[in-house]
């Protein structure tokens, strides 16, 4: 009995966004990465082209972060606090595709680094690795307004992915990305309409600035189903023709997963939950797996083993599955 395969027809595809720039393109990266370009829902190769695999960015902090101690021990006491070494290890040993550098040290409470110091950190990391780089500020808007333009200028032409622009606060970062050839992260708070609105605002300033959207994700067990459904709807809307949703998606999985009690509680305190280490790795990996199925293009992860399991999953899912 011949089954007639039912294929969805979409009118639109997700925009392709290039990260990084080689010397010929005005940067210093050894290679670039392209994300997006999907013409079907995640990994449904049988009905539309999925031209690029989702990529994994290892999260690196500029200062020794206040993360779970077991996680820091795994990352390595020698590298936590040394972003250049940490980034190098993430790329060479954990096979991360790129680096997500988090400038926590610029926060007034955790170092209050000056713009010049932040620029130096970014330059050190750029020198240590040849992959493209994502750089985000310290979540204090006034401070980020100072450091991000300085970083954008000092690394002009590198095509960094810089974040984050928000609805109330997008002009400075947009201008910096426009002036110095970088790509921007547009973050919206769990709301598909604000997500579109922010993209429209950024595009009003520049028709061509490449955008990666951060719809704000939640961690497993703590509202993941909301953000999963928002992401599914956004991607479905993109394929159906909504150009203001048709951008690649970044998901800060590690940050969210490691906030959960289930990732941190020891087996002594919660014997019913099993051993902390693999529970935590899977808390992070399962969060990533869910968002991969909803449409995430860039996953930001922390634990080396979460990176390797999710990497294997992506490789498997990129295999052709036509019937």
């Amino acid at each position: 009995m011949a089954v007639t395969i039912l294929k969805e027809r979409y009118t639109n595809s997700v925009a392709e966004v290039v990260l990084g720039a080689t010397p010929e393109q005005g940067g210093t990266r050894g290679f670039t990465l392209t994300v997006g370009g999907e013409k079907a829902l995640p990994f449904l190769h049988f009905e539309g082209k999925i031209p690029f695999p989702p990529v994994i960015a290892a999260e690196v902090a500029d200062v020794r972060p206040e993360w779970n101690q077991a996680l820091l021990d795994t990352i390595g006491p020698d590298v936590a606090g040394n972003p250049a070494l940490w980034a190098k290890k993430a790329v060479t040993e954990w096979q991360a595709d790129l680096i997500y550098l988090n400038l926590t040290g610029a926060h007034p409470d955790t170092g209050d680094k000056s713009p010049a110091e932040c620029v130096q950190v970014v330059k050190d990391v750029l020198a240590a690795v040849s992959c493209p780089l994502i750089v985000v500020g310290c979540e204090v808007a006034e401070k980020d307004e100072l450091i991000m333009p300085a970083i954008a200028e000092a690394t002009a032409g590198e095509n960094l992915l810089l974040g984050v622009a928000e609805q109330e606060n997008y002009k400075t970062l947009t201008s910096a990305c426009m002036a110095h050839h970088h790509t921007i992260i547009a973050r919206s708070p769990l709301d598909i309409n604000i997500c579109k609105q922010l993209n429209i605002l950024i595009r009003e300033m520049n028709q061509n600035l490449p955008i990666v959207i951060d719809p704000t994700v939640s961690g497993l067990g703590y509202g993941i189903e909301y953000t999963y459904s928002i992401m599914e709807r956004a991607r479905f809307g993109a394929l159906q023709g909504d150009k203001m949703l048709a951008m690649p998606i970044i998901a800060t999985v590690g940050y969210e997963a490691w906030r959960a009690k289930e990732a941190n509680a020891s087996e002594v305190d919660f014997p019913g939950w099993g051993l902390q280490e693999e529970r935590a790795i899977l808390w992070e990996a399962t969060t990533a797996v869910a968002y991969l199925q909803a449409g995430a293009d860039i996953l930001v992860l922390r634990h080396p083993q979460a990176i390797s399991s999710v990497r294997k999953n992506i490789t498997q899912l990129m295999a052709d599955n036509s019937f």
């Binding site: 497993l220 099993g274 051993l275 529970r279 899977l282």
Partner: peptide, 20 residues
Amino acid sequence: HQKEHILPLLSWRQNLYTDP
């Protein structure tokens, strides 16, 4: 069938099947 492996899966299942 280790507890630490199954709790994340059951949590995702519970989340996914809640009524939106």
